[in-house]
Nucleic acid binder design. Structure first.
Lengths: 342, 342
DNA sequence: CAATAAGCTGAACACGTGTTCATTTGATGA
DNA sequence: TCATCAAATGAACACGTGTTCAGCTTATTG
């Protein structure tokens, strides 16, 4: 009990106990180079006996690359974003990496964040929010660090993107509303929306046009002044106060949809009797009894898999052609725009 | 454009450009040791010119400690847990650390996770879920790594705990239900609950006794067979099917509370007309129009601050006496058990 | 002016691992 | 038996930083 600061056990100690050189120990735990079966066993045994563990800092320093992956998140209070993070964490660990998670608000914070990532020699960076400034990305690329963005398609060279298929979502929603006989259609979105919000609106309008619906139908753009549940609720109140009417509404995300629905209820209107409403994200809340909201489901697991696939591909060869992957979505039919799920 | 692999700029390069020794550069960026004002400026200028950044892996290797903090999370789909993580991330970054986040399911996963933390020489470990096995903690302590648990008080030597004040919560709820004239009181919890769930129940019963309520009142323990919203909802259905009645219900968390409320509504009963119901966690959802749930509010920000304070204290001196901090809670009065918020 | 102290600086070692390169070992074929 | 070759091994260098210690310069005090 006298030994105050326990010097941590190193590969050298293992080598001495096993009666081999430190290089062989390194070969065993680095999973490369040839080691005789017998030597291998001696080393593993000695390592277990001493409780040896590789020092990742030293390993990363030497390899010029740590097995860390930087993840930029924002607004975790949004249930969809937290479930997305959950999916990413799973896949990251499954592939043998560790997640370096940073929450970010402004653009300047993102800058210092990205720098820290490079200082830790991360194997890759995943941006789930905000657009990565082109210069910072260039800095990463120079260091040989791959960057992937989620749910936004921007044209930054050498950066891959993975995005839910908003066009497919728009078509599914347009077909559903048509099938239900809706004639006056609305699109609800936050005023200062994200890229994905805007893109979903564009795709929806485009889908309506392709289906030849814009002729017979009203198409209104409802603008929420705030984001999230309260934004949707207030939008509904103003909507009613202005005496407007719609029978089919598509919302940029689940929070807005729930808020709008509740706002309408406060005004004595409800779905599906008075109107149909369809959300985006399929968060747990939308399935609950008080909402039973029909929504577009994003496949978080598949998204996470594709993201890591992009990272590994570009890590292997930094100059491959830019990828822009679209993840198929599903329409989950519930009470606010009913029908038969297949 | 010919230089293929850009060798990263090192402290040596900065030293050469500034015309000083590498040691001085290290002193400037390590924030210790004395450096003349003039030399300092020369070094900073040279560093900016070259775009120098400290290599955290090398720094950590030398200091035997990285500026990483390991965070163990579980079930991020629970809104409270994600908001807790959000609070922790903020405080961690604010203090100049970086978060190494791991999601964990079984106990064996937690073991490999903790090992990885030590392999990265983290400055501390925060466990938000499950109880850290004593042996693993001992391993951390041997390496000089402080461990803090959130919302559970176990008696593991050298591990600090930060927990919302469940006794205070119980008293606030008991007083509120008493004030509203409730006579038959219920406590709803998940069958295989966490430590905090069980403790909240114990404290509630104790508070009821202290207030002298257990004599006049019924006190029932309602057991949910599943966790989360669906668990609460099913519990309500069974509760009604068995013909039971209660006029005041306290729930172990917000998800259970929302589920139970919706389940009662499906049976034609609603709060506050037919019964009062109070939840725990004050998640965003509980504030929404469809619920307006009276709940106990946990101060996530304060919790995060105390956690990091514990880490830094024990990091400074590993053998200080074990801390068990209780964070005050608030009762947020809403529709399901109305009253006046002060 | 001499003696002392205080503040800066640079050389050198340590941190723990990956990887190259030369050397040794053992096996195979003629 | 000897020549050839592949596999296995160990010595040495590299990765980029923190920190000690001795030497240097400059200011302070008697």
């Amino acid at each position: 009990m006298g030994s105050r600061s326990h010097r941590s056990v190193t590969a050298q100690d293992v080598a001495k106990l096993a009666g081999v050189s430190r290089a062989s120990v390194s070969r065993v735990f680095g999973n490369q180079g040839n080691v005789a079966r017998e030597t291998h066993e001696k080393i593993v045994k000695a390592a277990n006996e001493l409780g040896y563990q590789v020092n990742f800092l030293a390993q990363g320093l030497n390899r010029k690359r740590s097995q860390l992956i930087g993840v930029v998140v924002a607004r975790l209070s949004d249930p969809f974003r937290s479930s997305l993070l959950e999916g990413l964490l799973n896949e990251i660990q499954h592939k043998g990496y560790q997640a370096l998670v940073t929450e970010v608000r402004g653009a300047e914070e993102l800058e210092t964040t990205m720098r820290r990532f490079t200082q830790f020699r991360v194997s890759g960076v995943i941006v789930t929010s905000g657009q990565p400034p082109a210069e910072l990305v260039k800095e990463c690329v120079q260091h040989g660090i791959p960057v992937v963005g989620i749910n936004r398609h921007m044209d930054i060279p050498d950066v891959d993107f993975v995005c839910s298929d908003n066009k497919m979502a728009a078509l599914l929603v347009a077909e559903q509303l048509m099938r239900c006989g809706c004639h006056s259609i609305g699109w609800l979105n936050y005023q200062q929306s994200t890229w994905s919000g805007i893109n979903r609106g564009d795709m929806f309008r485009q889908a309506m046009t392709e289906k030849g619906l814009l002729g017979d139908c009203d198409f209104q753009h409802i603008i929420a002044e705030a984001d999230g549940y309260e934004g949707g609720r207030q939008a509904a109140h103003r909507f009613c106060a202005e005496g407007k009417k719609l029978d089919g509404i598509f919302c940029a995300n689940a929070q807005l949809a729930c808020g709008f629905l509740d706002g309408m209820r406060e005004n004595g209107l409800d779905a599906p009797t008075d109107f149909h409403i369809i959300g985006f994200d399929n968060t747990p809340q939308t399935a609950q009894y008080s909402y039973r909201l029909t929504t577009i489901h994003q496949d978080v697991t598949e998204t996470a898999k594709r993201v890591l696939s992009c990272l590994e591909a570009r890590s292997h060869d930094p100059r491959i052609v830019q990828r822009m992957e679209k993840i198929p979505v599903k329409l989950v039919l519930r009470n606010t725009s009913p029908g038969q799920n297949e």
